[in-house]
Write a protein that binds this DNA or RNA. Structure first.
Lengths: 144, 144
DNA sequence: CTCAGTCGTAACAGTTATAGTTGCAACTAG
DNA sequence: CTAGTTGCAACTATAACTGTTACGACTGAG
């Protein structure tokens, strides 16, 4: 599995914005978040843009611009974030259609499709059990 | 999630070998399996090589060479296959270490690690519930 | 002992997804 | 008007996987 870090990075950004707002600030800039995540501000803006399309954050432009949460962290789950930033399915079918004249080539895709759908459903259920509030709590609970 | 087709292809190969052996043949060649999967024999050999290292199949060289199952399909689960062909974790951490001087940068990785471990455990449990015998049965049950 | 068929594996090109970078237009509070 | 920030396009870099070619290693058959 070629894993990617999009879900991790999105959770990082949301936790950062949430904590920053609790400290009394209105908005957080992509520059600040990028510094915390040790990456480029454009990477953060792209990712937050996807979260904005999903209704999880809002952005303001102009002077004093930046990002803020559109909802409470407690009402956002990792499933919401996952759906916002992960496009495809967990497991893929063959890149080229198998030989439809072969019994196995013909039946393998429906068979695996059934298995994969069940697994993705379970994954979604697990992701939905964790709110960003839970994540932030765990972040702050890390021993120093 | 950049999904890959390695698990699908490995299940295809195992189901093909299993069915072929039930039809009375001793071994299957990478050429035959590649034709069914519509890919290159080397791709199949590489993948089956990983399954051999995991003790799921055996290979013979020389004339009349090919691949055979090392165990019954009923005693092989998708988890065995998954572990044999998928190296990394499902979700990755940041590519570069976050700012350890930031509270969120410091605590985010342990927090997400905990979440991800639970999810991977659930995934493994789901994969372990499906045997290759189940897969072959579903393959043969596909309506024509 | 030779031959033919197949595996084992290295090497490289092609494809795709993600991440990183630069540059600049658009927007807006002051 | 100015300065700070987002929005976004374009490009490069990196990594994983797939596809392909090539060839040595092995072994049953004759």
């Amino acid at each position: 599995m070629s894993a990617n870090s999009r879900l991790t990075l999105a959770a990082h950004a949301l936790a950062w914005i949430g904590l920053y707002q609790r400290q009394g600030h209105e908005v957080a800039t992509s520059e600040q978040i990028a510094t915390s995540a040790n990456t480029n501000p454009v990477v953060i803006r792209r990712l937050l843009g996807e979260l904005r399309r999903a209704g999880l954050v809002e952005s303001r432009r102009g002077v004093g611009a930046g990002w803020s949460l559109a909802r409470e962290l407690g009402s956002m789950t990792l499933l919401d974030v996952y759906e916002a930033v992960e496009p495809g399915p967990l497991f893929a079918m063959h890149r080229t259609t198998p030989d439809q004249g072969c019994v196995v080539g013909y039946g393998i895709q429906p068979a695996m499709q059934g298995v994969y759908e069940g697994i993705e459903e379970t994954l979604r259920h697990e992701l939905a059990r964790v709110t960003l509030e839970n994540v932030l709590r765990d972040v702050l609970a890390a021993p120093r």
